[in-house]
Simulated assay, not measured.
Amino acid sequence: MSNCFPENFQALDPYYYSPGVCPRGYTVACAAGLGDGATVGTCCPTGYGCVRGRPGHESNACRTVLATDSYFSYRVALTTATDDSPRPQSSTTQFWAAGAGVFARGPVIRRSGSDPSWPGFPV
């Protein structure tokens, strides 16, 4: 759902947002200090946690576990890495049982050493 992300959202390194403010409905789910005194963090939808190092997926994935059986409707965009042409989209609905893991992308943010720290992340 591209309308959930900030304008001109880029999900790949080296893109990030600064100052480190998550979009509405997102919170800082994980953070790490950088050598220059700055901090990098991943914004996940509220209620999701941060999962690093999922093989074959973006390294800063967000994850939650479904408490109840659920149906999800979502759009799938076909993308190419070589151009910015319009991308065809299709909609689908899928059933997921309670206990299933749901993953989402999260915008990456940065803050300098002089910016206020994020709640729960003193680095």
Rank of each mutant, 00 (worst) to 15 (best):
A104N: 11
P19D: 08
R75I: 05
Y26P: 02
A32C: 10
G37P: 06
G33I: 05
F72H: 12
N60W: 04
Q94A: 10
G47E: 06
E58G: 06
T64L: 07
C44L: 02
P86R: 06
A38P: 08
P122R: 07
A31F: 00
V28W: 02
A29V: 00
R24H: 15
D115E: 15
G35N: 13
C62V: 03
T82I: 11
P122A: 04
D83V: 07
Y48G: 00
F95P: 02
G120R: 11
T46R: 11
C4T: 09
G41D: 02
P116D: 06
E7A: 14
F103N: 00
A67D: 15
V123I: 11
V65S: 10
A67S: 14
G47T: 06
A81R: 13
R105I: 05
F95T: 06
P86C: 05
P88K: 06
W96T: 01
Y26D: 01
T82Q: 14
Q89W: 12
G33D: 13
D69Q: 08
G20A: 04
T68M: 10
A11F: 13
C50H: 04
A67V: 11
I109A: 00
L34T: 10
L34K: 12
Y74E: 03
P6E: 01
P88Y: 05
Y71A: 05
S59K: 11
A81Y: 14
V21H: 05
T46K: 10
R110K: 14
C62T: 03
A61C: 11
S18A: 13
L78C: 13
T82S: 14
V51P: 01
V21L: 10
C62S: 04
Y74K: 04
A11H: 14
T79N: 15
T79H: 15
V28S: 02
Y48D: 01
F9M: 08
